[in-house]
Amino acid sequence: NRLGIIYEIQGMKAVVLTSEGEFLIIRRRKDMKVGQQVSFENEDIYNV
């Protein structure tokens, strides 16, 4: 599992900021809110 803070939500995608200072786009889940810490898997990351 990886951890990140939700920075922005766009439709079915969420932008998270990881503890390494990396911004990633992941698959959104219904319970996500901006500012929330979430765990996610590598499979949830969109390749940009």
Rank of each mutant, 00 (worst) to 15 (best):
R2D: 03
D44R: 01
I9S: 01
V38Q: 02
D31I: 03
N47H: 13
V34K: 13
D44N: 02
I26F: 01
V38C: 08
N1E: 14
K33W: 04
N47M: 07
E43S: 04
R28M: 15
E22Q: 10
I9M: 12
N42G: 08
R28Y: 15
G21I: 01
I25P: 05
E22N: 08
R27D: 08
N42E: 14
M12Q: 14
R2P: 04
R28E: 04
T18Y: 02
G35E: 02
L24P: 00
K33F: 05
V38E: 01
V16P: 00
G21E: 05
N42S: 08
G35F: 04
Q36S: 08
R2T: 06
K13R: 06
K30W: 10
S19Y: 08
R28S: 15
R27E: 13
V48Y: 03
N47V: 12
V15H: 05
R29F: 05
S39K: 12
E20R: 04
S39Y: 11
F23C: 12
V16Q: 00
Q37V: 13
R2K: 12
L3Q: 06
I26G: 00
V15D: 01
F23A: 04
K33E: 05
A14R: 00
E20K: 03
S19R: 11
Q37S: 13
L3P: 03
V34C: 14
Q37D: 05
R27Q: 07
Y46D: 14
V15Y: 13
F23I: 14
Y7M: 12
K33T: 05
N42I: 10
M12N: 15
M12C: 15
R29Q: 07
L3K: 09
I25G: 05
G11N: 11
D44L: 02
A14P: 00
E20H: 07
Q36P: 00
G11I: 04
Y7W: 14
A14T: 05
K33M: 04
E41H: 06
R2N: 09
V38P: 00
E41M: 12
I45L: 06
V38M: 04
G4L: 02
Y7Q: 13
K33S: 05
D31T: 13
F40D: 01
L24H: 05
E22I: 11
G11M: 04
R28G: 15
D44M: 02
N47P: 08
V15F: 09
E41A: 12
V48K: 14
V34N: 03
G21D: 05
K33D: 05
Q36W: 05
M12R: 14
L3C: 06
R29D: 12
S39V: 11
G21T: 02
Q37C: 08
T18H: 01
I26V: 07
F23G: 01
S39R: 09
V34L: 13
E41N: 10
M32V: 06
E8L: 13
V48C: 15
I5E: 04
Q10P: 01
F40K: 01
I6H: 00
N1K: 08
F23Y: 09
I6S: 00
I6Q: 00
S39H: 10
R27I: 15
V38H: 05
D44P: 11
Y46N: 08
K13S: 11
I26A: 01
V34M: 10
M32A: 09
E8P: 00
L3Y: 13
D44Y: 05
I45G: 06
V34R: 04
Q36G: 02
N1V: 13
N47L: 07
L17Q: 11
R29N: 13
D31V: 04
V16N: 00
G35P: 01
E20L: 07
E8D: 10
I25A: 10
S39I: 06
K13W: 13
L17V: 09
L17A: 05
R28D: 04
V34F: 03
K30N: 15
F40S: 02
M12L: 05
I25V: 14
R29Y: 14
V38W: 09
K33G: 04
Y7G: 02
Q36R: 10
T18L: 04
V15E: 03
Q36L: 08
Q37F: 09
R2V: 03
Q36V: 11
I25M: 08
E43M: 02
Y7C: 14
Q37N: 08
E20C: 10
I9D: 01
N47A: 08
E8T: 07
F23V: 13
I6P: 00
D31S: 14
F40L: 08
Q37L: 08
K30Q: 15
T18R: 01
M32G: 02
I6W: 00
L3D: 12
Y46H: 09
T18M: 03
D44A: 01
G21K: 07
I26E: 00
Y7V: 13
K30I: 15
G35Y: 04
R28L: 15
I26D: 00
N47R: 03
K30F: 05
D31Y: 14
K13I: 11
D31W: 06
N42R: 06
V16R: 00
V38T: 06
V38F: 04
L17M: 13
I9E: 02
I45P: 03
E22C: 13
D44V: 01
L24W: 05
I5N: 04
T18A: 05
K30E: 15
E8C: 10
N1C: 14
L3R: 10
I45H: 03
V34W: 04
R2C: 11
R27Y: 13
V34G: 02
D44T: 02
Q10C: 13
I45N: 03
E20Q: 07
N47I: 11
Y46M: 12
I25L: 13
R29P: 10
V48S: 13
K33I: 04
S19N: 12
K33A: 06
G21H: 03
I5C: 08
R27F: 14
S19Q: 15
R27H: 06
E43K: 11
L17T: 09
R29M: 09
Q10E: 12
I45T: 01
I6A: 01
V16Y: 00
E22F: 09
E20N: 08
N47F: 08
I6Y: 01
S39E: 13
E43I: 02
L3N: 12
D31L: 07
K30C: 15
L17S: 06
I6E: 00
F40Q: 01
S39F: 09
Y46K: 11
G35S: 03
E22L: 07
G11Q: 10
G21Q: 03
F40E: 02
K13Y: 11
Q10I: 12
G35I: 00
N42M: 09
E43Q: 03
L24K: 04
V16W: 00
E8I: 09
L24N: 03
K30M: 15
D44S: 01
R28I: 15
K30V: 15
G35V: 00
L24A: 07
I6R: 00
S39A: 10
I26L: 07
R29E: 12
K33L: 05
E22W: 07
R27K: 12
Y7S: 05
G11A: 11
R28A: 10
L3S: 12
T18I: 04
